[in-house]
Amino acid sequence: MPIKLPSTLPAYAVLTDEGVMVMDEELASHQDIRPLKIGLLNLMPKKIQTETQFARLIGATPLQIELTLIRMSDHATRNTAVEHMESFYRPFSDIQGEKFDGLIITGAPIEHLDFESVSYWDELKQIMDWTQTNVHSTFGVCWGGMAMLHHFHDVPKHLLETKLFGAYRHSNLNPSSPYLRGFSDECVVPVSRWTEVRRKEVEAAGLPILLGSDVTGPCLIEDPTHRALYILNHFEYDSDTLKQEYDRDLANNQIEGAEIQLPYGYFPNDDPAQRPLNRWRSHAHLLYGNWLSEIYLTTPYDMDRIGQDRTDLRG
């Protein structure tokens, strides 16, 4: 089954060209099934790139997905056209009375700030609490995952001396997890962050770590009590996303004079003139497909029941 997107959304044309099944509202209305209602709270500055990356992953399963793009109510983006935001995004204040099968909270390039110093922190706390009554399963990504760990469990984020930047191998620490169904013993995951959460502090909070690395620390964390997953790295990245960040940092370096590190394990032979190879795409599709499958198996058919019964509906 395809993902339902407005035909004028840039992701619609991109994914159609890639062979991803997409449908518009008119075609979807002819199918007599209940699609999974998934929200994307997009906190990244490059909204179109990010919405396309996540739509690609959640649109690759046999399930019909209805994607809702969500923004903070009073925070104006400076990197995406106002017309795009008004046409395709809904503020949280408009959707807070609705129920969702799943919600993705993206990262944000504000790692250097304390959580409480973020301009929209109060509303984000409201959203995280709202997930407990209105969302069946939540997926926090990078800074979004760290924010949820901080809010629900007081797990701190720590600033790093150098940026974790590259494509790192991670170990499968819980092969029996339904979220890692089909995963290899190791997988490569893109990493790009200046902060970390530490394994001992995550384990002290009673949270199982599903994927991790001795170099980059915890990667995928499950939070059964809050029906959530937290991934601190970027399976959703395109093949050239790390290259774009590297090129941007090189350009900024001409002004700031900071030393720019080559992304680890990314360019063939560590040669930035060569085209980087995507070594994470299959596991990215597995992870998000497994997440959606778990939602499909456990979410109530009657959406009014979402958030009322926190037990696993599979028994």
Rank of each mutant, 00 (worst) to 15 (best):
Q244R: 15
G19C: 12
A13K: 06
L292T: 05
I295H: 04
P156I: 05
F54P: 01
R34F: 10
R198T: 13
G140V: 03
F88T: 01
L277C: 11
G265E: 08
V22Q: 00
S293Q: 10
H285L: 09
R275C: 05
P190N: 02
D94P: 03
T16F: 06
I127Q: 10
R227T: 04
R181M: 12
L159G: 09
V14D: 14
A167S: 14
E116C: 04
N269S: 07
G166H: 12
H75A: 08
D185S: 02
V197W: 06
E83C: 05
L149R: 01
S282P: 04
D247I: 13
G19D: 01
K37P: 08
I260L: 08
R169M: 13
P2T: 00
P218F: 11
L15Q: 04
F92S: 01
E203Q: 11
N79H: 14
R56W: 07
I38E: 03
N79T: 14
G182L: 11
E123I: 07
L242K: 04
L180H: 10
T311S: 14
P10H: 05
V141H: 09
I38K: 00
Q261V: 09
M128F: 15
V82A: 11
Q64V: 09
W143T: 10
G257H: 06
K157T: 09
L220C: 11
